[in-house]
């Protein structure tokens, strides 16, 4: 690794950090938030056994979990224009990622809710709670601490998956590294540097996760 490459990598670093902050992190945060709401709705629809919606939820989870995310991205970005729906890169990515988080995390959330002893729901009813009150005040808070580790996993997974949006012309960390490398031909070093940027983001998330788990542990 000669001096030229060192200088190039130092020069490239802020250029990679910039899309991390401008693109990867907002894309992750937005998609994950929408995805969690979808996941909660999908889980509750199944737990409350609401007819029709429940089958719809199963169908949605089935489709999303059993098709590759990159194919979904292609269908949305390159395919939908054929039927008159034109989405640019960012909305396409948000759509695919949040729908994916919704499908995977709904199973996590459902399992977590079902792991809270059913007797607590009975007790809540006999204390005068309505179903929504019991869910949101008693069951879901406990399910959250149960679901927290697997949901953190999904979040970290999503950070890395956002690199797939490169394929639908989204200029994020990987695409930026690709562009710089295309000029200098130092693919090896620049892709390593891109990996390093993801490593930093995910490490920070891992540290936050550990702290939060300790905090949740204390409140039990």
């Amino acid at each position: 690794m000669d001096e030229r490459i060192v200088a190039e990598l130092i020069d490239a670093f802020p250029k990679l950090i910039r899309p991390a902050f401008m693109m990867t992190i907002p894309l992750t945060a937005l998609s994950f938030s929408i995805g969690l709401i979808l996941a909660l709705i999908t889980a509750l629809v199944q737990i409350a056994k609401i007819p029709v919606l429940r089958q719809l939820a199963r169908f949605y989870i089935w489709i999303i979990r059993c098709t590759p995310m990159i194919v979904q991205l292609f269908v949305v970005y390159f395919g939908l224009p054929n039927v008159g729906i034109r989405l640019s890169s960012f909305p396409s990515a948000v759509l695919v990622f949040s729908v994916s988080v919704g499908a995977y995390c709904s199973e996590t959330i459902r399992a977590a809710i079902e792991s809270v002893p059913a007797g607590q729901l009975d007790a809540a009813y006999c204390t005068g709670f309505t179903f929504p009150q019991a869910m949101f005040r008693i069951i879901i808070p406990q399910a959250c601490s149960m679901a927290f580790p697997p949901l953190s996993n999904s979040l970290i997974g999503l950070v890395k998956d956002t690199s797939l949006a490169y394929s639908v012309a989204l200029v994020e960390v990987l695409a930026t590294a690709q562009r710089i490398a295309a000029r200098t031909y130092d693919y090896f070093w620049l892709y390593l540097e891109a990996a390093f940027v993801y490593l930093i983001i995910c490490s920070v998330l891992t540290i936050i996760q550990r702290r939060a788990e300790k905090f949740l542990e204390r409140r039990r």
Binding site: V116, P117, G119, Q120, D122, A123, A124, C126, T127, G128, F129, T130, Q133, R137, I138, P141, Q142, S145, R219, R220
Partner: peptide, 25 residues
């Protein structure tokens, strides 16, 4: 209703278990 296996709310302290029915519903 008092249950065989207590069914206390796991996310609440003893006092919060007792007050929850007054405060929430």
């Amino acid at each position: 209703f008092v249950f065989q296996n207590f069914n206390l709310f796991g996310n609440k302290t003893a006092l919060q278990n007792v007050t929850a029915g007054l405060i929430i519903p």
